[in-house]
């Protein structure tokens, strides 16, 4: 059973339907006690970072997620759900994140090293560059295109957490992980074949569903 963390800020419909397509049982709940006993957890997220941290706190999920990660339970953060795992974000003023991964979130500068401006958000299909194909999450994931939509981006010094990146005027962390804690900047359920493969690997390989 996969537990989907519902703190009022995720597109739960499409991710839950994607799990149904790969025959994985799931439970959606907005309180930690209702998700106890699940084999793995998905942390979705759309919207603004400060609102999301507040909502996570109000639903009692901050401690819950930290405990589950400490216990080694598989957790998959999606989109904003990935960004929340880091130390802090500049979105809407400096806000602390869950601090489970090293790095911070800042806005795409919108201007490259040569002084040329480019569009923000990073929106559309971009190709993955796989750095750690041996990770269980990356099994059979090729350098396919996945669908990005984001204005804020992870900055980290720790290359060991970068499973895959993508190039958008800078190296964009696309799939990251540290042990059983994994995440993707893009929505796997909206990213065609590669995205579905990631979800399947998380549920079936990492959570053994």
């Amino acid at each position: 059973m996969i537990g989907i963390i519902d703190y009022g800020m995720g597109n739960l419909f499409s991710v839950s339907k994607a799990l149904e397509r790969i025959d994985v049982h799931y439970k959606i709940a907005d309180r930690p006690k209702d998700l106890e006993g699940c084999d793995g957890f998905i942390l979705p997220g759309v919207g603004a970072f400060p609102d999301a941290m507040r909502a996570l706190g109000e639903h009692g999920f901050i401690r819950f997620i930290k405990e589950k990660v400490a216990e080694g339970a598989p957790v998959y953060g999606i989109c904003l759900g990935m960004q929340l795992l880091f130390e802090s974000s500049q979105e809407g003023g400096e806000t602390d994140g869950l601090g489970l991964l090293p790095g911070s979130i800042s806005r795409f500068p919108g201007i490259d090293e040569d002084g040329n401006s480019y569009k923000v958000p990073h929106m559309g299909w971009n190709q993955l560059k796989i750095h750690q194909p041996e990770q269980p999450l990356m099994k059979d994931v090729k350098d396919d295109h996945v669908y990005f939509v984001h204005s804020f981006v992870v900055r980290t010094e720790d290359a060991s957490i970068l499973y895959a990146t993508s190039d958008y005027h800078m190296e964009v962390p696309a799939v990251i992980g540290k042990g059983n804690l994994v995440a993707s900047q893009f929505h796997p359920e909206k990213s065609g074949r590669a995205g579905m493969q990631l979800l399947e690997n998380f549920c079936k390989v990492m959570c053994k569903q």
Partner: peptide
């Protein structure tokens, strides 16, 4: 939204914030 793994946009007759919410919440 249940059957496809690519993004999609819905337009036509969306007039209120409620309409926007309903459309996005349904996938």
């Amino acid at each position: 939204a249940s059957e496809l793994a690519i993004p999609f946009t819905v337009g036509g007759g969306i007039r209120t914030l409620e309409d926007i919410k309903e459309t996005l919440r349904n996938g």
